[in-house]
Computed example of a mutant assay.
Amino acid sequence: MMNNAMDTWLEPEELEVLTAEYRLSLNPLAADSAFCIPFADLLNQEKCQHYLRRVGDIFETTSETATVSLFAKRYAYLVVASGLYAMSLFNKGLNVTLENGWIESSYQGEVWLPKARLLNTRISMPQAGLRKEWRDQIIQQMFAGNLSRVWNALSKTAKISKSVLWENTAIYVYWLYEKKYVEGASFEQRKQFEEDYHYLLHDAPAHLFGESRNPLQQFNSPKTTTSESDTPIRVRKTCCYYYLVSDEPNDYCSTCPKRGH
């Protein structure tokens, strides 16, 4: 149990939301384990490269750079989506440490959407008056203790910039708090989402992310209209390399800096 926190469990209705909407899993895959791997094995270069070769087949690309970037999008989502939602809405902290998780996945020719399976399902709640301290510990465990370590390993394995991997992470955090989480939320729930989101973007110190700068703040560009979008969008600072796996030439994402906007 972490400092400033009490041990508890998820309620059935809370667990149902996290498993149905945010790709949390508590059960191992019964069969077809080709795309299942412990989180911690991503730090092992040999095991990680073997896994990424299989993932590259899903994306139908031989580009290691594109494979790692597209994989990182999915890994970032399955780590942060359920964890931040539980933190902000339920006031509960999932144990998303590297040692406590598996990527659970099968693939039958559709969109590849892996899930995160947690081994230890006990969770934490802040003690009275200590939510800010508890929140820091949840953020640090999720980002510095998991994503930063995996991004460091992947950037060395595939010679890809960590900036790409962190921006892949950031765009999901922006979307989750700005769009997904607030769907159907009450006024009080929205207030908590907004408070935590503001903290993540503007006040959370860099060490909670295991970096010299807060990456969520670093990539939080002002939204702007473009020649292709009347709705203001946040143009990326890095390219995610999706165009390398597209069937269309120069098929850049709508927010890609390569478009020129």
Rank of each mutant, 00 (worst) to 15 (best):
I103K: 00
K92L: 03
F90S: 04
W175P: 06
S148A: 11
N168P: 03
A31F: 08
G210M: 10
Q218T: 15
K258D: 15
T231R: 14
F187S: 13
S227F: 11
L200N: 00
K159H: 14
V79E: 08
K191N: 12
V55T: 07
I171Y: 04
Y181K: 02
E178G: 08
D251E: 08
M2V: 01
V79A: 05
E13S: 15
S69A: 15
G145E: 00
Q45F: 12
M1G: 10
N220E: 06
G93Q: 04
I233Y: 13
E99S: 08
S227A: 09
Y243P: 11
I37F: 00
A76H: 06
T225N: 08
R74A: 06
A66C: 07
T65A: 11
S106A: 11
K115L: 06
P249E: 12
Q127R: 13
R54Q: 12
N220A: 14
D136A: 10
A34H: 08
A185M: 00
Y177V: 08
V111T: 13
S212A: 12
P114E: 00
L78Q: 03
A40N: 07
T169Q: 09
L15I: 12
Y242Q: 14
Y252K: 02
E248Q: 12
L118V: 04
T226S: 10
S82V: 01
Y51G: 02
Q192W: 06
G93F: 02
F35I: 08
E11N: 11
T8D: 02
E16Y: 11
